[in-house]
Design a protein around this nucleic acid. Structure first.
Length: 745
DNA sequence: ACACACTCAGTGCTTTCGGTTCGAT
DNA sequence: AAGCACTGAGTGTGT
């Protein structure tokens, strides 16, 4: 089928595709069109990565818009929201508008409801529904990208419930669900009343295999000689061979430490394969990486990048990740050693993929556990860059013949696992049952169960009582904590229940926060950080050896600061959890005591990305705590507010006013303060030379700061910096790039 | 001859992938 | 369970 044969699309769009060289539809795309994707029919497309799924979604959305409707595109990750929105913006020339909304980013300008295409994360859509976004009722097409993630224990239920709600609110809603190749795409199609396009077709061939001994053995039975390098490293041998063919390699490993070590070692292979221009360009990227942060992680990454290799994991700052991804796409960086972040994230294809580690540590299972087939296949799927490589190649590594056979059976010839709903678990239902009641979606136990009957879980289970049992447990919990009231058969949310649902926190987090705030009239900052750190919405910082002693001591030292009582030291699990929350709280306290990022990273054994993550989560939960305290009329709302602001800016209390000025981060605020400028009024009245000195002579910066604080004449022309104002108490100054650490992310 | 760098084996240590969500500025 | 980081002994190299 040819693109020019398509009908029902906005004028000019088919020509636009033709101009991009898209003339013939790929077979799965043609199947989707035959199934009616351009006529408003629902479709589940279970096809490999990079085989044109996005195009199917675009056909659905564009034809829906042409019929006068609007479309919603649901993504699993914030980073993907931006990536997809940029792709869809190509249609703006045909008069379509695109909007993005995620937890940390919202496109500017007019109301989302006026956009033709809205891109959002599943949680954001859920949150918008809870907060009463009425444009939802006007949707005609919903695309759910990576829908196989309904299988995810933590985030799957949200996607599942959100799709069910959207379908119920909009009776004839077209649902286009895009999935990786899974074992039971037919069940997904049944659930969504959609036609199924199930295909393994790929635009470029993917050869998969196992390396063992001195050869790579492939799925088609062929072999290629490939001896391990002199040090016996199989990974290095594959990388070398690929480098000789001028290609790049993506290496998947099972821990951050392994990723960093592998990148360091493999940079010895890549460094000899760089041209002079590449070396220069890489040196620039390395400098940019060093500017992002001055932690060890950052300098280790820069050192590797200079030599043409990199690592990639969630401990990196967002800018680090973007720089690595771009340099890899630009073919400057030849090898990336990555944790699974990269397999699920933005598009980073590579000639070759090596899955070095196929087992990963799992504390609950007491050791190393094999990865899911689906996960390994997702990594494989990164092999082969469309239009650039003749084929992609993905290899697992085996140490002996038996392992090779096991890997062939387990991953090469194996079908991916079926997708199974994880909805019937208390943590998932706690939040979704409350939201369903609070939004008036269900008003009785019966209507609640009726709604839950429209989920994937219900369509998959044989045990129909299980969902009802967990729901009843959850209802009891919500009633006991005064989030839900029962009047006879009727269920309704209390005012606190409504608030909790809209704040988007786990009701259990809310209960913990409420009890904690009620127990302590004058909480300290540390007490509040600890309170939010021990809720289920904050991921735990685990304890290393020696931490137990250190934090136990701290716990007794500052015992009276905590909201609520400490669990007994002999109640092992509860005490461990309490201590790891204390470790998180202490990190937050150090952050607000203006400790440098590199010190924090070293002290707590985390990367810059982890620090940002903790700070962001704490900001959100303290914001929720502030609202809850206000709603319940608690005296300590002021303290909570201050604690939240201090976390937001990463400063001590006396800098709160200054740090709120745009272009003033924690570092600049501190230098201004040292120069005698203590608040915004001082800043407006200050000698310009003092301000200029405090920002280390950066005229542009000084001018915009004065402008932001409402100075009548911010010009710095002919002003000389007062060098005394630039003096630091510490012997060596910090790089200026650190000044706005609190602003990025 | 000596200081320093590097390699290697052995031990034990640590690990434990990832991540969304408020609201207002 | 397994790789990494660390330690200390042994070897190599340059002055």
């Amino acid at each position: 089928m040819r693109v020019s044969e398509l009908s029902g699309l906005p004028a000019g769009v088919t020509e636009h595709f033709a101009s991009e060289g898209i003339e013939e539809l790929y077979p799965p795309q043609a199947e989707a069109v035959e199934a009616g994707v351009t006529d408003g029919e629902s479709v589940v497309a279970s096809v490999p990565t990079a085989s044109g799924k996005t195009f199917i979604a675009e056909l659905a959305m564009l034809s829906a818009i042409e019929r006068g409707g609007t479309a919603l595109y649901i993504v699993p990750l914030r980073a993907l929201a931006g990536e997809k929105a940029r792709e869809f913006e190509a249609f703006e020339e045909f008069g379509l508008s695109v909007g993005v909304t995620t937890g940390n980013y919202e496109s500017e300008g007019d109301w989302l409801g006026s956009r033709d295409i809205i891109v959002a994360t599943s949680e954001k859509v859920d949150s918008l529904v809870r907060n009463g976004a009425d444009w939802v009722d006007d949707l005609s097409c919903v695309v759910s990208d990576e829908v196989h993630l309904v299988d995810d224990r933590h985030r799957g239920p949200t996607l599942e419930v959100t799709l069910a709600k959207l379908r119920q609110r909009v009776p004839d809603l077209q649902v286009v669900a895009l999935s990786a190749t899974v074992g039971n795409a037919d069940e997904l199609a049944d659930w969504l009343d959609a036609a199924l396009v199930d295909s393994t077709w790929r635009p470029i061939d993917l050869r998969t295999g196992v390396h063992y001994g001195s050869a790579a053995h492939f799925d088609d039975g062929s072999q290629r000689e490939l001896p391990a390098d002199s040090a016996g490293s199989q990974t290095a041998a594959v990388v070398e061979e690929t480098l000789d063919e001028d290609g790049s390699t993506l290496v998947f490993v099972n821990s951050r430490r392994n990723a960093e070590a592998a990148a360091r070692r493999l940079s010895e292979n890549t460094r000899g394969h760089l041209t002079t221009e590449e070396r220069e360009a890489l040196a620039d990227v390395a400098d940019e990486i060093r500017d992002v942060s001055d932690t060890d992680t950052s300098s280790d990454l820069a050192d590797a990048v200079e030599r043409g290799a990199a690592f990639h994991h969630a401990g990196l700052a967002r800018d680090h990740r973007t720089l690595v991804e771009e340099a890899f796409r630009d073919r400057l960086v030849k090898v990336v050693a990555a944790t699974p972040t990269l397999a699920a994230g933005v598009n980073t294809p590579s000639r070759r993929v090596v899955v070095r580690d196929w087992r990963r540590y799992d504390g609950t299972a007491g050791g190393m556990q094999p990865l899911d087939v689906l996960e390994v296949h997702q990594m494989f799927g990164r092999a082969g860059r469309p239009g650039l490589d003749p084929y992609g190649e993905a290899l697992l590594l085996a140490k002996n013949h038996d392992e090779m056979e096991e890997l062939f059976d387990r991953y090469i010839y194996a079908e991916p696992e079926p997708v199974r709903s994880k909805l019937a678990a208390e943590p998932a239902l706690r939040t979704h049952v409350l939201a369903t009641i609070a939004t008036g979606f269900a008003t009785t136990r019966e209507s609640l169960l009726e709604f839950l009957d429209s989920t994937l879980y219900a369509s998959q289970t044989d045990d129909s009582d299980r969902l009802a049992e967990v729901t009843d447990d959850v209802l009891d919990y919500l009633v006991a904590n005064d989030f839900v009231e029962r009047h006879g058969d009727a269920l309704s949310a209390t005012s606190a229940g409504h608030l909790v649902s809209r704040l988007y926190i786990d009701p259990m987090s809310a209960a913990e926060i409420i009890h904690g705030l009620e127990a302590e009239e004058e909480p300290t900052a540390l007490g509040l950080y600890h309170l939010v750190s021990r809720t289920p919405d904050m991921y735990e910082l685990y304890l290393r050896s020696g931490d137990r002693e250190e934090y136990t001591e701290l716990a007794y030292e500052r015992e009276e600061e905590f909201c609520g009582s400490m669990p007994s030291e002999f109640d092992d699990n509860a005490f461990e959890d309490w201590l790891s929350a204390l470790k998180t709280a202490k990190l937050l306290e150090d952050w607000t005591e203006e400790l440098d990022e590199d010190r924090l990273a070293e002290q707590y054994g985390v990367g810059p990305g982890d620090i940002r993550g903790k700070v962001e989560t704490a900001e959100w939960l303290l914001g929720a705590a502030e609202r809850l305290a206000g709603d319940l009329g608690l005296e300590n709302a002021i303290e909570v507010r201050k604690a939240r602001q201090r976390v937001e800016y990463g400063v001590r209390e006396e800098l709160l006013d200054l740090a709120g000025v745009r272009n003033v981060g924690r570092k600049r605020a501190r230098r201004l303060y040292r120069a005698g400028i203590e608040d915004r009024t001082d800043l407006r009245d200050a000698e310009k030379s003092t301000v200029l000195g405090a920002v280390r002579g950066r005229r542009k910066t000084a001018e915009s700061i004065l402008e932001n604080v409402g100075h009548p004449n911010p010009s710095m022309t002919d002003v000389d910096a007062d060098d005394d104002a630039a003096a630091d108490t510490e012997a060596d100054g910090e790089p200026e790039g650190q000044a706005t650490f609190g602003d990025f992310g």
